[in-house]
Design a protein around this nucleic acid. Structure first.
Length: 743
DNA sequence: CGTAAGACGGTTTTT
DNA sequence: CCGTCTTACG
């Protein structure tokens, strides 16, 4: 295929790139590694390159394989490619590793003993299945926790190891070297119920590509170009998959382009291997490497602080972020020392309030923490100040019990052999089909080698069980027969609604008088609505298992609160990075479990945090923090010392303080007053901005109140400044009176 | 079969 | 301290 002369439009999209980005886009043939530092236009390069391949007619859309880690990234790429092309991009193999593998596996399922309409299990179902396997093998689950075995199995799957590929020597010592055989039993059980877990999607496909040269050759003919996002986050099995697909016969046609940043590799605990990116040149001989180092996001001090910090890591591919903006001068990164975690929350809250008064957009402010539990203190403070916020990455729609139940009904409808789904709903709502009935069904199913549903059917026919449960079971089975039959006639949306009614499932929640019940019914309606957006039930089920996301619209003016991990890929004008204390950040567990490697990953996490900020970055640490029950003193994080002084401005406490604190952690001198064990709340400080007066002096029981987090409710009883409130949606909670207002 | 008291543990999270 | 999961009882 020859290169087409660049059209006017083509020149246009290329002209907007800097030289290094342009090189990354135009080096189309042969292996290419793009090392893209934070804020250097990685996504732009990836999408432009994709569009460039299509515009220059090097390949049809169906001949490009583009892989991302998240659905969000895949969606974004699809949209931006379409925008450059000026039309919707269709027929693309663009998606997450798991979605693409699911698509491949459905085409070749029979090669691993599955039927192409297999179910993808969620973690819940995975655990239940594994527990069943352990029960059957007589493993003591007190002594050998199922989570432990699941972790071992997942690690094997992350490395592309099927049970047959594990040698006895590689067996884990779990349950006296039985991990391997339990793994085999678990896989066998998955096959019986025609299901896969997430790891299987990759594992099965890699196994197929390894053992069926004809299938592999077919994909080699198909995929002329491969694009990979976030390469530093790939695990071994993903790497194997890519390598298999990229190793085309003619070495000059191995057109794989991987984009990533070794400095932002923060998922090793999930199986990601930073070595994949470090080793790229060896894996793909003759590879070109392009570095994107012009940062268009942040000010010079922010880049300088981040660069100085990350330079402490060893074994980097090496890359230096340069300010790419004209106006890159800006305020220094602030390091604020505080007495305790409450004061830290007040400092952050106060500054946010000040920023709001100055007219800053709250959506451009983020508080990034190391652990999820840290958000609470900030939430409380923001509520007190009346500042709207959102916590990113909380509970997800598809993880709620009622949604899972409804999904289980739909799964049985779609796939009668889905024993896990059947088991979940057979007695939900209660039908008197408890342990005894279920055990009988299991026994028959195992004996006859049939799915639970079939066994249940035979039992009703045989007249097994007591009359009452038997009748209930018969009704349920008749229901499924009827609903399944209705699928063709009335369509999946109507059937789903009917099913939830006739099975008694919605009735169950209508009868439930807990405060959550109305919300759950709402969620079920929402589920039916979502179902309507899909052509088929199968399509919907696939979507839900692979795209487990809550549609959190970034919506209005709200401060964002999230973990550092969740913040990767995002950016804000102002970023608060609290809790930079030894043990918390770097996290003790990371150090204990992974030593220097763990420390370096924590440092990368710090680097990710700092580089989220466009204009302002405020790092803080507290000398005292409440851990579970009691207060303990905390040493400032070693990362603070590693920040280059010329880019830092210290507030409230000298930098030299750290060494002295280390020597005598319980004695704080200098800035901090010497106080007894329990730190008093110190009200002074430049950041103390107006605190809302305690206007809720007296709220008698029975008062209708509003709480920013829990919504409306009624006061049940009071205890000093604490209120017991029965919230309409959130249930009974104990809250401080200053957090509510009279409704 | 459903509720209630005790044990336990308490990074990071996507698919 | 606080929320979750297990286990014991009515």
């Amino acid at each position: 295929m020859t290169t087409m002369p660049a059209s006017a439009a083509a020149a246009d999209y290329l002209a907007r790139l800097n030289p290094e980005q342009r090189a990354a886009v135009e080096t189309v043939d042969g292996p290419l590694l793009v090392l893209a530092g934070a804020g250097t236009g990685k996504t732009r390069v990836l999408t432009t390159r994709f569009a460039h391949i299509l515009m220059t007619r090097r390949a049809f859309p169906s001949q490009v394989l583009a892989v991302t880690f998240t659905n969000k990234a895949a969606r974004e790429m699809r949209e931006r490619v379409s925008a450059i092309l000026g039309q919707p991009a269709e027929g693309l193999w663009l998606g997450t590793f798991h979605a693409l593998c699911a698509r491949m596996l459905r085409r070749h399922a029979e090669l691993v003993g599955l039927d192409s309409n297999f179910t993808i299990l969620d973690t819940d179902d995975q655990m239940r299945l594994l527990k069943q396997v352990m029960d059957a093998a007589g493993v003591d689950q007190k002594r050998w926790p199922p989570q432990g075995l699941m972790a071992v199995i997942q690690r094997w799957k992350d490395r592309g190891c099927t049970p047959a590929r594990i040698t006895p020597a590689e067996d884990s010592d779990f349950a006296n070297n039985r991990a391997r055989s339990l793994y085999a039993a678990y896989q066998e059980r998955l096959r019986q119920v025609n299901a896969t877990d997430f790891g299987d999607l990759m594992l099965h496909v890699v196994e197929i590509l390894r053992t069926h040269p004809d299938v592999l050759a077919d994909y080699h003919r198909r995929f002329r170009y491969i694009l990979v996002d976030e390469y530093q986050d790939t695990n071994l099995v993903q790497y194997l998959w890519l390598r298999l697909l990229a190793q085309r016969e003619d070495p000059s046609q191995r057109n794989i382009c991987c984009v990533g940043d070794d400095d932002q590799s923060i998922y090793s605990w999930r199986g990601a291997e930073i070595e994949n990116i470090l080793r790229f040149e060896k894996d793909f001989p003759g590879a070109t490497i392009v570095r994107l180092e012009s940062n268009y996001r942040s000010t010079t001090p922010i880049l300088g602080a981040a660069a100085g910090l990350i330079a402490r890591n060893s074994g980097r591919l090496g890359k230096t972020l340069r300010p790419g903006r004209e106006d890159s001068r800006g305020e220094k990164v602030r390091v604020v020392s505080l007495w305790d975690s409450e004061e830290e929350a007040r400092m952050v809250g106060g500054r946010i309030e000040a920023a709001r008064r100055e007219g800053h957009n709250l959506a451009e402010i983020a508080i990034l923490v190391r652990t999820g539990s840290q958000t609470r203190a900030f939430e409380e403070r923001l509520i007190t100040l009346g500042i709207p916020y959102r916590v990113v990455g909380g509970l997800k729609f598809y993880e709620r019990a009622e949604i899972r139940d409804a999904m289980a009904y739909l799964r049985v409808l779609q796939q009668p052999a889905d024993d896990l789904a059947f088991e979940r709903i057979v007695n939900t709502p209660k039908r008197g089909l408890g342990d005894t009935a279920l055990r009988a069904m299991h026994q028959l199913a195992r004996a006859e080698g049939v799915p639970l549903l079939v066994a249940a059917d035979r039992m009703t026919a045989m007249g097994a069980l007591r009359p009452k449960p038997r009748q209930a079971l018969r009704e349920l089975l008749e229901g499924f027969a009827r609903w399944r039959e209705g699928l063709g006639r009335e369509g999946h949306v109507v059937v789903a609604a009917t099913l939830l009614e006739e099975s008694g499932y919605t009735e169950m929640w209508k009868q439930d008088k807990s405060p959550e019940a109305p919300g759950r019914l709402e969620n079920l309606k929402e589920l039916i609505r979502a179902l309507g957006e899909f052509e088929t039930l199968a399509g919907f089920l696939e979507h839900v298992s692979l795209v487990m996301e809550s549609d959190q619209a970034p919506e209005a003016e709200r401060v964002s609160l999230m973990t550092l991990h969740a913040a990767k890929g995002l950016e804000f004008d102002t970023v608060f990075l609290p809790g930079w204390e030894e043990g918390l950040f770097p996290h003790q567990r990371s150090l204990d479990e992974s030593g220097d490697k763990g420390l370096e990953e924590e440092r990368r996490l710090a680097y990710v945090g700092i580089t989220r900020a466009r204009k302002r970055c405020i790092i803080s640490h507290a000398a005292n923090r409440r851990l579970y029950a009691n207060w303990s003193s905390a040493i400032p994080s070693r990362f603070l010392e590693e920040l280059p002084p010329e880019h830092i401005e210290q507030e409230g406490g000298a930098r030299a303080e750290r060494s002295r604190m280390m020597a005598a952690p319980s004695v704080f001198s200098g800035q901090f007053p010497l106080v007894a064990r329990k730190p008093r709340i110190i009200e002074a400080g430049a950041w103390e901005v107006s605190e809302r007066p305690a206007k809720n002096a007296a709220i008698p029981p029975g008062t209708r109140v509003f709480h920013q987090k829990f919504g409306y409710g009624r006061v049940v009883s009071t205890d000093d400044n604490k209120l017991d409130v029965e919230f309409d949606k959130a249930g009974r909670k104990r809250v401080l009176d200053s957090f509510v207002e009279k409704a």
